[in-house]
Design a protein around this nucleic acid. Sequence first.
DNA 1: CGCCAGACTGCAAACGTTTTCATCGTTGCA
DNA 2: TGCAACGATGAAAACGTTTGCAGTCTGGCG
Lengths: 344, 344
Amino acid sequence: MPLSRPSLVQIAEQVGVSPATVSRAFNRPELLNDATRERILTTAKRLGFRPNRVGSSLRSGSTKTLGLLLPTLANPVFAACFEGAEARALEAGYSVMLATTGYDSQRERTAARSLLDHRVEGLILTVSDPSASATLDELTANDVPFVLAYNESDRHPFVSVDNRAAAGDMVEHLAACGHRQLAMISGPLDASDRASKRLDGVLDRAARLGLPAPTHVSMPRHTAADRARLRSLLSSPRPPTALFCSNDLLATAVIFELAALGFRVPRDLSVCGFDAMAFGALMVPSLASVHQPSTEIGSQACQELLSALGGEGSRSLRLPHRLFGGGTVASLPHHAVHPSHRYP
Amino acid sequence: MPLSRPSLVQIAEQVGVSPATVSRAFNRPELLNDATRERILTTAKRLGFRPNRVGSSLRSGSTKTLGLLLPTLANPVFAACFEGAEARALEAGYSVMLATTGYDSQRERTAARSLLDHRVEGLILTVSDPSASATLDELTANDVPFVLAYNESDRHPFVSVDNRAAAGDMVEHLAACGHRQLAMISGPLDASDRASKRLDGVLDRAARLGLPAPTHVSMPRHTAADRARLRSLLSSPRPPTALFCSNDLLATAVIFELAALGFRVPRDLSVCGFDAMAFGALMVPSLASVHQPSTEIGSQACQELLSALGGEGSRSLRLPHRLFGGGTVASLPHHAVHPSHRYP
DNA sequence: CGCCAGACTGCAAACGTTTTCATCGTTGCA
DNA sequence: TGCAACGATGAAAACGTTTGCAGTCTGGCG
């Protein structure tokens, strides 16, 4: 029952060997005589010794720790990302230090600094705008390896889906269901490049399909729907028949507010989201959405970071997305829908 | 553009003072002559110096880091707990190291060990069974301060709601709505003492109210509903009219499976959950549930841990729960409901 | 003038490891 | 027999801080 955990040297004294030998018993066991190794290991266990990573990190210069910097865990997408990254890190013998930013670029910087102060060896992070991020500049200047998650960038390694294409696919689905007048609903665009890319994808694909230009409504927060803005959108001269929300949390909030405004989904209006969180599939009606593989985004980002640390450099990855048709999108009855446009 | 970040001594050399003085410039600025302090701080900034916490931790014996050990972040309850704890820790100048256990007591132990190896100064954790947990024993033996979150225990400090009472209150609500034959649905009881306490609460309160003894069905996982078990429950001689699920995720899954079995909620069957995750309020119909203040559980647990570290000892706290009536629970029409039993 | 307090700073020893280099037997082989 | 090579271990110097102690200098006061 050791009051303060024993150190290497205490074990060394007990066993009657040098500290170096004890260290080797844990790190390079094959170097030791079987007998000594056993002797060391047993007394170590008896005294409840575990090597102090602080000392080890200081001397070796490696903390075996990765930093993870995400907007919020309230969005299950990021929670899954963490779990993916954590699992992969664990396999590689790394630990993970998590910090959240609340979509705030100020906190983004201070949190990143804090992680660096702890001497994490690299970072996985999601930033507001990777093309103009003080945090990323700082990381680059300090030669800290990092991999972006969810962000897309042509200057930095990232792991994400192809947000443009994914949003486009959803537009295609909506069009196939007979919708022509679309609206995109998002949070503040400057706090999420994902939302921007998705909006681009929506506009682009709509144009390509010959639909009238979708309108865009920006909500004050990423996950809450403002009733007034919603009302004014729907009372415009040519109101949309389908609302594409930039994430599932927002989509759910929108559906809720629509109910309050007297609109029923999907009878009066179709709604879809993005992320395909597990929850959406259980909603009644189920939420139409585009699935992005968050756990894999986390684990792959971790994988890329690890190989960067291993000196192999890291690629950027666009993982496949998948369209989830759902009950919240209805086919407009008065439109003939070409069979090839149907989704399962 | 420093290739490897400079150290205290480099700054000291640059400025022409001793390392001790540089250290003081950051930790005890009031001890220094204003001029020297300024000189140090500016060159430190110029060279991009930030004190290395590894060295600092080693020497001072304090890492200013807390460990957080939770079952899974896939449950928003725990995600919120993290955010609460993180925020409080940040205020106190602490960082947080998070690890998840997946409800697995094996991983529970190894993850706790890993956190201790990092020399976290204390732990906030949720275990399967606090009354028989090898992990807790180990923590106690090593004199590591810790606070349980969500668990209740008479041997260890904890922060939670009163699960028994909370579950009881929901039973009361159901009874007030005219339900008499209840069923409790949970995951494996041995992996969650919360579920056990809630079941106790249900049985106890039902007995007290003179209801027939509720049946209990255990699902293989905490968040997934097994269709077969559900079917057999509902085809029993006296099927329940209301299902109390031990958490909201499970409740949602149950509602989904019920739909597949042809039951509509709440017309054919009432369903309620526990946790009152934000999401449930947005469901249509909204999910009846018992709210537990997860963010506060996290921040208060952190608070208690901090005061334990400060030597003040830590209390156990039962935070107030709150009943959320919701659309998934219907009043049985053929029952007169006493007005005093109504909930807002 | 002498002395002391106080303000400021430096010296050097830790903290718990890892790792290079050296040491010392032993063994294999010519 | 001599020598190289090898296996097993130790000595000691780092890694970047913090901190008790001691030192220097200044000014104030008797």
